[in-house]
């Protein structure tokens, strides 16, 4: 059998952002050292994202900043929200530059409601909240929500609730024929579907790391 030599997988990790606002490298070095000494074990080899947006010109060379940070046993992984000058220096130092996460700015995540059929090949993403679909979802269509997913038409596609890791997210289908359902990365294929819930109103949730199906009460 042919086995691929590489495999790309999705994953999300929580990393600390280290915001630097000092005027000189010495200042950084001193304060960083003090801070790390409070809990050396915690900070040992800790990966961090560097936020240099608070530094005032003239800019300290990135190389010196990296040396200081690494000297304190931290592992800088990337820059965030870097100015043009630092972006170029990051490239020279083989460090990726990240854009600030827009999600952090969303105070309130509104409900996303879709009232037209979701067709094969289409993908709907409800960022930061719940997704409600009032129409059928076809085979080969994908619903993704950071919160829960509700489908009122026949659900034949794939549903990914709790896409950013919310294990309390649930999926509600009024006619369950889904190819795949997933909550916070735990998935369940229709191949292994218990036939008792097929084409029935069903709620799907995560319990102790397992996908659990249960019948929804439906008015007669």
């Amino acid at each position: 059998m042919h086995t691929p030599a590489i495999e790309f997988k999705g994953g999300s990790f929580t990393l600390s952002i280290l915001k630097l606002v000092g005027q000189t490298v010495d200042q950084l070095e001193q304060q960083l050292k003090q801070h790390v000494q409070k809990a050396p074990k915690l900070f040992s080899q800790m990966p961090v994202i560097l936020d240099l947006s608070g530094l005032q010109p003239p800019l300290m060379p990135l190389e010196q900043i990296l040396t200081t940070v690494r000297g304190n046993d931290l592992k800088p992984m990337a820059l965030i929200d870097a100015c043009e000058g630092y972006q170029q220096q990051a490239q020279e130092n083989a460090l990726p530059c990240l854009r600030p996460n827009r999600r952090a700015n969303i105070q309130h995540s509104p409900l996303k409601v879709i009232d037209r059929p979701v067709r094969s090949g289409q993908q709907i993403y409800a960022q930061g909240g719940d997704l409600v679909v009032l129409a059928p979802v076809s085979n080969g269509a994908e619903l993704v929500a950071d919160g829960s997913i509700h489908v009122y038409g026949a659900m034949r596609g794939r549903a990914f609730a709790g896409a950013t890791g919310n294990t309390d997210a649930r999926i509600f289908c009024h006619d369950l024929q889904a190819e795949l359902v997933a909550i916070a990365g735990h998935y369940h294929l229709s191949e292994h579907q218990d036939p008792t819930h097929w084409q029935k109103p069903t709620m799907i949730q995560l319990e102790h790391g397992r996908i659990l199906h249960s019948a929804l009460p439906c008015p007669q």
Partner: peptide, 13 residues
């Protein structure tokens, strides 16, 4: 049927 469904999606987007 599935391919037609895909085309319907294209028409909408």
């Amino acid at each position: 049927v599935r391919d037609s469904d895909r085309i319907l999606g294209m028409l909408q987007s």
